[in-house]
Design a binder for these strands. Structure first.
Lengths: 207, 207
DNA sequence: ATGGGTATCCCATAAAAGGGGGATATTGGC
DNA sequence: GCCAATATCCCCCTTTTATGGGATACCCAT
């Protein structure tokens, strides 16, 4: 059963090229292609796509807004952003809106088909530069104290769970050990980080 | 100029297979392969790799710790996690520690070489399921700032000091009020953020 | 004058911290 | 191979801190 693909792209030549590309691929079927996303929810209901290719810079309505509302109404539909923009703002807003992938338009045709299959299979295809941006958005601990390196892996694990807001009990349950063991780890953590409370330790952990 | 690759993997057959794979590829040169990461920084200085392949479950010292200290000392070196673990905890801790990619060990050999080249070229190769986890971590991060806006300025102030690791006493002293007042503020904070402990509140505060 | 923000106090229990003690296993260095 | 160091695990006790539930009062603005 081919993957049902719906396309939103306002540039006519590009839209037709994409349509042809998708329709020619054995693995995909084109179920629709539009130049704006004003009625994206209706059209999605009508065409029942598995994957939506969405441009960002569409006339009338932002593609990101469309993703947001599509994702709410059709959580099973995977949305792949396909755009020329690679600025952090748009990338992160799209991902927060529920996009499952983010490709730049420079992506070669064959990789586009691969990406459609990948996102349909539960992956999250991203152009390399986008992936790097996404990874770098994680809190980087570059300037932190070397104290944290002194922690054993078990101690780091304990501290991680504490930082999530877990109590001693929960951490013990999570690790499958006794609460006294967790306490021992925490004592060592306090010694190594030179602190006297969970909050202080977490504060250093997230410095 | 081939990419200089350094490998950390405790499983001997796998380490040798990886070594052979990397060394046989025209694009890469193997500069070292070790079964533990105890002296990863020394070895990295010695071998001057471009890319480090790092297992997570290494004897003696957690691979994530090694990444953290490698990334601080050699920011130009790209670290690629290569592991069997795909639980959120390890993935996010590895990425926060500065890993530039995260591959599961089920990755086919050819894709591994691709990934090494990709990470060297500024990309962030991830196994599809990992990429999906990473992307799905976004909405939760960004979408929950509304609660924080409900706090009064005094409550925000209290939460700020708590986040620095201060105890009730210290916060009270800092604000020049009684402990019971601080407690009242904290009770309100808990109600508004829907949490039941300082650490949870701070966790939301720093979301 | 009603309601929100700030401030203070009381009572109770729960959780965390600080101080001991000990057991086992792994490992790094000799 | 052996020893010392470390990590991991468990238990005791006491004190401190934190949480949850009340109540009261003042100021200030709508």
């Amino acid at each position: 059963m081919p993957i049902r693909v719906l396309i939103y792209e306002d540039n006519v030549p590009l839209r037709e090229a994409l349509s042809a590309l998708v329709d020619d691929a054995d693995e995909c079927t084109l179920v629709g292609a539009y130049g704006d996303c004003l009625r994206a929810n209706d059209q999605t209901y009508q065409h029942q796509p598995d994957v939506v290719l969405m441009d960002i810079d569409l006339p009338g309505r932002d593609g990101i807004q469309a993703v947001s509302s599509l994702h709410r109404e059709f959580p099973a539909v995977e949305v792949l952003m396909l755009t020329v923009f690679d600025d952090d703002d748009r990338v992160f807003r799209a991902l927060c809106a529920g996009a499952s992938g983010y490709l730049l338009k420079q992506t070669p045709p064959t990789q586009l088909i691969d990406a459609i299959q990948s996102v349909y299979a539960g992956g999250a295809p991203m152009s390399p530069s986008i992936a790097r941006k996404v990874i770098q958005s994680f809190p980087s601990k570059v300037g932190q104290s070397a104290d944290l390196d002194q922690l054993t892996s078990r101690e780091s694990q304990v501290l991680y769970y504490l930082a999530q807001g877990m109590s001693y009990k929960l951490v013990a349950a999570e690790l499958g050990v006794g609460i006294e063991t967790v306490r021992t780890h925490i004592k060592r953590i306090y010694e190594k980080l030179h602190v006297h409370s969970v909050v202080e330790a977490v504060s250093k952990y997230r410095s």
